[in-house]
Amino acid sequence: MFIVHGHNREAKFEVQALLGRLGLEGVILDEQSGRGETIIEKFEREAADVAFAVVLLTPDDQGGVATATLDALKPRARQNVILELGYFAAKLGRGRVCALRQGAVEIPSDYNGVQYLGLRRGRRVEDRDCRELRDAGLRVDMNRL
């Protein structure tokens, strides 16, 4: 399982801990050795054998159309997060990608309509939050929550 993240370290570690409690191991790219590779080479190597991706859409950046005023900018996920969301949606299929959206983070227009789960600090994990993992065929031990 791959955890895609931006700058929100708290969210990254919270999801990693949750997956650990469920008996799943989450690959976090910046925790893997580089072996002298470029970032994209490292990403492709680590992403090659995963069966599922959790993508954290956290408000790390702001953006809008080129003519937007500063007050019209919207919270956005990091560009690497959006690239990797698209990569995993194409490689694994949308049914094997769980997007966790924090707040009013802008969703890429081509991804509109795809269901995502809300990511709120201090929120209790519920059975329905793990349904995506179970339905993707991953062995999830709910008793470990």
Rank of each mutant, 00 (worst) to 15 (best):
M1L: 13
M1Q: 11
H5P: 00
G6C: 00
K12D: 03
L19S: 05
L19T: 09
G20K: 10
G20W: 06
R21K: 14
G23I: 00
L24C: 02
E25P: 01
E25N: 11
G26R: 04
V27P: 00
D30Q: 15
E31S: 11
E31Y: 09
G36D: 02
G36K: 07
T38F: 05
I40W: 13
F43C: 00
E44A: 15
R45D: 02
R45S: 00
E46D: 12
D49H: 14
D49L: 05
V50D: 02
A51V: 07
F52I: 03
F52L: 02
V54P: 02
V55P: 00
V55E: 04
L56G: 02
P59N: 11
D60W: 05
D61K: 04
A66P: 12
T67A: 13
T67Y: 10
T69L: 14
D71C: 12
D71I: 15
D71W: 13
A72M: 11
N80R: 00
I82V: 15
L83R: 06
E84P: 10
L85M: 10
A90N: 14
G93D: 05
G95L: 03
R96V: 08
V97G: 05
C98W: 07
C98G: 01
A99F: 03
A99P: 02
R101C: 09
V105I: 06
E106M: 06
P108H: 04
S109G: 00
D110E: 08
N112W: 10
N112A: 14
V114D: 05
Y116K: 09
L119W: 12
L119A: 06
R120G: 09
R120Q: 14
R123S: 13
E126R: 15
E126W: 09
D129Y: 03
E132I: 15
R134M: 14
D135L: 15
A136D: 04
R139Q: 11
D141T: 10
M142L: 14
M142R: 11
